[in-house]
Simulated scan of single mutants.
Amino acid sequence: MTTEPTDPIKLPLDALHAELGGKMVPFAGHSMPVQYAMGVMGEHLHTREKAGLFDVSHMGQMVIRGEGRAEALERLLPIDVVGLKEGRQRYGLLMLPDGGVADDLMVANRGDHLLMVVNGAMKCLDLEIVQAGMPDHDVTLLEDRALLALQGPSAEAVLAGLVPEAAEMRFMDVRTLDWDGTELWVSRSGYTGEDGYEISVPVARAEAFARALLAHEDAAPIGLGARDSLRLEAGMPLYGQDLTAETTPVEAGLGWAIQKVRRTGGAREGGFPGADRVLAELAEGATRKRVGLRPQGRAPMRTGVALYADETGGDPVGEVTSGGFGPSVGAPVAMGYVPADCAVGTVLYGDVRGKRLPVTVADLPFHTPRYKR
């Protein structure tokens, strides 16, 4: 039995993307701009130097209400939700029973509710998992709010020109701010390694707000292509490639996201799906790890390239999960999984079209984040 393909969902700003010359492609079930006239490299460098505006309305915005919501959510996430202060957010992982990751996300304490921002391709499954795990709470996936990301060293000046209070925020702060009678839910965070904001805005006001941001001389629309190269340089995993249901947080190098209070000996140790495996790996180490990779030469190594210890024989020892050209680095960069004993500087060989080319294990990130702390 076959099913008819579903047309990609149009974003609330679809008409604006067309007006701005966005090249639209299917992504995570949505029609999204991959680039504009500036091109991927130009957009990448513009974001590093000034401010880029990304439409990330495909992401899921999930509201959780009810007494004891933080304690209940800790049964699904290995992070400290109870200790998350009002007006703050942190990175989190939705866990599976075998220690794999169902999704990575951001969770914010907005006072009378928690707000989770989850990946677009996973939002419906995430909703099912959270509703099943929190049956006594009101868990809602919002449909009436768009999400924009404003990233880069000029992001503060651009947003503060419309909402002056945004300049007072620090990395991982969340606030409700007013713009022209419209309630904005603002977090100082992003997915590029640059200072910036993610802004939830009612769909009915999203286009007017986006136009107001783009009226600033430093702001430009940026597509998926540059978003991917920016996050790769910043060493941030992409769910579905660098982080999957078969990957544990420790293998992915995300043990830092599990606070002390949730680790062995902590006040609220474990209690999340897959805790036995994850806590054991935190204590003893995993057999493989996510690392940075520097291909030698100018040829990028893309997702799926097998990695070998030897130039001529043997079985694969790892795999590239993300790769491309790093415009800020001026060279190819990649991420992937290798045996845990592969130290920085180890030379491996990636199979590119039947040729084994050298690649060096490197530290992450390739571009040092510039957050306002």
Rank of each mutant, 00 (worst) to 15 (best):
M1H: 05
D7M: 11
P8W: 07
I9P: 01
K10F: 02
K10Q: 13
D14R: 07
H17E: 09
H17R: 11
A18S: 14
L20I: 09
G21R: 06
K23V: 06
F27D: 04
G29T: 08
H30S: 15
M38G: 01
M41A: 15
M41C: 00
H44Q: 05
H46A: 13
E49A: 14
A51T: 04
V56A: 06
H58R: 08
H58D: 12
M59A: 12
M62D: 01
M62F: 00
E71F: 15
E71I: 11
L73I: 04
L76A: 03
L76P: 04
L77R: 06
P78G: 08
I79E: 12
D80K: 11
L94I: 15
G100W: 02
A102F: 07
A108Q: 02
D112L: 06
L115C: 03
G120A: 12
A121D: 05
I129E: 01
I129T: 12
I129L: 12
M134K: 07
L141M: 13
E143D: 15
L148P: 03
L148W: 10
A149W: 08
P153C: 13
A155E: 04
A157T: 15
A160G: 08
P164K: 10
M169K: 11
R170I: 12
D180F: 00
G181M: 11
W185K: 13
S189L: 10
Y191D: 04
G193S: 06
D195S: 13
I199A: 06
A204I: 13
R205I: 03
F209W: 08
F209T: 09
R211M: 09
R211I: 01
A212G: 04
A220N: 06
S229T: 14
G235I: 05
A245D: 11
I258S: 00
K260V: 04
E269N: 05
G274C: 08
A280R: 10
E281G: 02
E284P: 00
G285L: 06
G285Y: 00
R288V: 03
K289Q: 09
G292A: 12
Q296E: 15
D310P: 01
G313Q: 12
D315I: 06
P316T: 12
G318N: 14
E319T: 14
T321S: 09
G323M: 12
G324A: 09
P327D: 07
P332V: 00
V333R: 09
A334Y: 14
G336M: 05
Y337V: 01
C342W: 11
V347T: 15
Y349C: 04
D351F: 02
V352L: 14
R353D: 15
K355N: 10
T368S: 07
Y371F: 14
R373T: 14
